[in-house]
Simulated assay, not measured.
Amino acid sequence: MNIRELISQYCDKTEKKGNGITIYSGSAPEPIETPELFAYLDFLSDEPSRKIWHSDDYRMFLTEIDGKITVYEHVRLANYRIQLLDLQEKYGEKKEKELPDLADAFAFANREHKNDTRKSGTPYITHPMDVASILLKENASHELVLAGLLHDLVEDTDVDIETIERRYNQNIADYVDAVTEPEEFRQAANEDKAQNWKDRKEYTIRKMARANSEIKLLSCADKLANIRDLICDIRMEGEGFWDKFNAPKEDQEWYYRSMLESFATGPQNIKETRAYRDLEECVEQLF
């Protein structure tokens, strides 16, 4: 049994702590077995009254004390490990010859983003992993999935488009370039991101309205991953989380709704994709 099945079956209480810890608790009518990806900590356990397991992959501790089940999950630390496992599982159906490229793109992105974090404090690599996972669920091309892993390198690191083209190929570089702000915007943003925020977003909105379906899907996956994180962060930290952004909530709403319109525009629209519909639902949920 995996841990999510165990929590669903035995735990009827959930408590979220402000430090990113979630605690699940409940009762088991009989002794439980070691869940998948967990290790039994016999040196901390005192059978039969107390059993303790730990999972580095899930960033969880599981205890069973006199029939009472408690699971301690450090949500923020767990995210990128679980997403990586999920990505590996979904990619398992792809051709073996494509796996080295995926591993290389992940390692490259992870190395270049190693000093970066999301606004929530989680490792930045969790975001391109989210984007790649969304694209996999759309059965996107191998090159578009790789572009999902690499899409923020030019904007957020010292990597340039030419490096991506040399390391991978022209198509992947073109995908990344299509969702990267022009250099003049990036230079201005380095001075004051809030000052030219709307100009940058208006440019992106116009560009996506004219883009082909693959580029729209890549950009949509990026926005979907962002808004899912945003919903989670606001749930954990409250409305004050908006203060970390370069534009207020009402401007963010304008941007997300405008991007939805762009993705739904023209014969190359992506209105029928899962990513678009999920983004639409998230926008209604958040705003």
Rank of each mutant, 00 (worst) to 15 (best):
Y58W: 06
I270M: 07
A189K: 11
K114G: 00
M1D: 11
S25H: 06
E155P: 08
I23Q: 14
A140M: 02
L230Q: 11
L149S: 08
P267C: 14
M236A: 11
C220Q: 04
I69E: 02
I82W: 00
I227T: 10
R186T: 07
E143R: 06
Y203D: 06
S258G: 10
Y80V: 02
P267Q: 12
R111T: 08
D57R: 12
D177E: 08
K51N: 14
L230M: 13
C232T: 11
G266M: 00
E280N: 04
Q268N: 14
L41I: 12
E184L: 03
E239D: 03
M259L: 07
Q83W: 01
T157R: 08
V154S: 04
L44V: 10
T34H: 05
F38W: 00
P31M: 06
Q88F: 09
D130Y: 09
F106V: 12
F245T: 00
E280M: 05
L37G: 03
T122M: 15
T180P: 01
D66R: 15
L153Y: 00
N190Q: 10
N110G: 07
Y168F: 14
D229C: 07
K68Y: 08
L149Q: 05
F185P: 11
A189W: 06
G238I: 00
E64W: 12
D251V: 03
L44W: 07
T122C: 15
K249F: 00
K201R: 07
K16W: 15
I270V: 13
L99V: 14
R274A: 14
E15F: 07
V154Y: 01
E181Y: 12
G121A: 06
V154F: 02
L218P: 01
L37V: 10
N19Q: 04
D177M: 09
S213P: 06
P182Q: 07
N246D: 11
F106D: 09
G20A: 04
T34Y: 05
A140S: 02
R257Y: 03
G266W: 01
K17Q: 15
F38R: 01
N269T: 05
Y58N: 11
D116Q: 09
K249H: 00
Y72V: 04
N196R: 06
Q268Y: 15
P248G: 01
E239G: 05
Y276T: 13
D174L: 12
G148Q: 00
G121R: 11
D158L: 05
D152E: 04
V159Y: 13
L149A: 08
Q285Y: 08
K271Q: 09
K223P: 09
L135K: 09
A103K: 10
R4E: 14
A188M: 05
Y276K: 09
H151M: 04
E5N: 09
D46N: 13
I227A: 08
L146D: 05
S258K: 14
E5D: 11
W242M: 09
E73L: 10
I215L: 04
D42G: 08
T14F: 13
W53S: 05
I205Q: 05
E281N: 09
N115F: 06
E253C: 15
L218G: 02
D174R: 12
M1S: 13
A28K: 11
D86M: 10
Y80F: 02
L77M: 03
W197S: 14
N115I: 02
R118Y: 11
L6F: 01
N2D: 15
K51R: 15
S45H: 01
I231W: 03
Y80M: 02
T122I: 13
A209G: 07
Y255A: 02
T204Y: 10
